[in-house]
Simulated scan of single mutants.
Amino acid sequence: MQEKKLTSVSGYIFLLFAIGCLALAVLTLVVSIQEYGPFPAIVLFIISIFIFKGIVIIYPNEGMAATFFGDYVGTMKESGLRWVNPLYNKTKISLRARNLNGQMIKVNDKMGNPIEIAAVVVWQVADTAKALFEVDNYQTFVQIQSEAAVRFLASSHAYDNMEDENSQEGATLRDNTGLINKFLEQELDERLGQAGVRVTEARISHLAYAPEIAGAMLQRQQATAVVSARKQIVEGAVGMVEMALERLEQKGVVRLDEERKAAMVSNLLVVLCGEKSVSPVVNAGTLYN
């Protein structure tokens, strides 16, 4: 079912005509009831009620879907005072953007780790015919399908790539937020399209490990950070030792055999990589004694 436009006319003329018929009915009932009886007044009163029934008020960003004995006639989106066939069954529907603040749910990610995740979805009705007639309740449909999309997204991606920090296999929920939000929008568009709903924006609003594994994962992250920091320190220290040996050899300050070089490298690495400050030992004798 596709949305189609409902033709309508301005309601101000019909409003004036209905008020005139109602006033004329009252006047006829008062003045001519003895001569013509109440029948003309009743007819005018029914005509005015019939015209009043066809007058509708459409607010900005609002639509009105009309059916005629069960058949969908069309949707009117022109704002203001409008008039349509009084026999139409009219249903108003909001076209404004709405926020869905999803509840926090617990789900297993791609690696099987339990995580907590929630999303905020901005959506609006784009096709009133689908929203009203393709699904039972489009608002409930949006809520349930949004939760299902978040569950599917979380189970299709890992929370974090802890095994290999340099791996490029797929996006993770924590490190690729922008890409994950795009995936969520695409998934919601596919699910909510049949209800005539367009997703304007979708973002992950909450993401964390479940409490039962949060402590263990925090220790793991801290250990990974320590190893990464130590790796950088060692790489820097080795470079500084290499530079020191090269400068000593170029300047000819002192000549060291392989054993003394090994001792010097060991001492420099201890100084550069150690966590505590080092107390120097002054050799009062010769270099080799």
Rank of each mutant, 00 (worst) to 15 (best):
F133R: 06
F133Y: 14
F133T: 08
F133A: 03
E134R: 03
V135S: 11
D136T: 11
D136S: 00
D136Q: 11
D136E: 05
D136V: 07
D136P: 04
N137M: 06
Y138F: 15
Q139S: 04
Q139V: 12
T140L: 01
F141I: 01
F141S: 04
F141W: 07
V142N: 01
V142W: 08
Q143G: 03
Q143H: 04
Q143N: 12
I144K: 11
Q145D: 10
Q145P: 02
Q145Y: 07
S146Q: 14
E147Y: 04
E147I: 09
E147P: 05
A148P: 05
A148H: 01
V150K: 12
V150W: 09
V150C: 00
V150I: 05
F152Q: 14
F152M: 12
L153M: 07
L153I: 02
L153P: 05
A154Q: 06
A154M: 04
S156W: 13
S156T: 04
H157F: 09
H157T: 01
H157E: 01
A158S: 08
A158D: 02
A158I: 00
A158W: 01
Y159C: 09
D160E: 12
D160N: 11
N161S: 09
N161G: 12
N161K: 13
M162G: 07
M162E: 10
D164R: 13
D164P: 05
D164E: 04
E165D: 10
E165N: 09
Q168V: 13
Q168I: 13
Q168G: 00
E169C: 03
G170F: 07
G170A: 06
A171K: 05
L173M: 02
L173A: 12
L173G: 01
R174V: 11
D175V: 02
D175N: 05
N176G: 02
T177I: 06
G178Q: 10
L179K: 11
L179C: 01
I180R: 09
I180F: 02
I180C: 10
K182I: 15
K182C: 09
K182W: 00
F183Q: 15
L184F: 06
E185R: 06
E185F: 05
E185A: 10
Q186F: 15
E187V: 11
E187W: 12
L188Q: 00
D189M: 10
E190H: 14
E190G: 10
E190V: 01
R191F: 07
L192D: 05
L192K: 11
L192E: 04
Q194V: 15
Q194E: 15
A195T: 03
G196M: 08
G196P: 02
V197H: 09
V197R: 08
V197G: 12
V197K: 04
V199S: 11
T200S: 05
T200N: 13
A202G: 11
A202T: 08
A202Q: 13
R203F: 08
I204C: 07
I204N: 03
I204K: 07
I204V: 03
I204D: 03
S205W: 14
H206D: 09
H206R: 09
Y209L: 10
Y209W: 15
A210E: 07
A210L: 07
A210C: 04
A210K: 08
A210W: 08
P211C: 10
P211K: 06
P211Y: 04
E212V: 14
I213E: 10
I213P: 03
I213M: 14
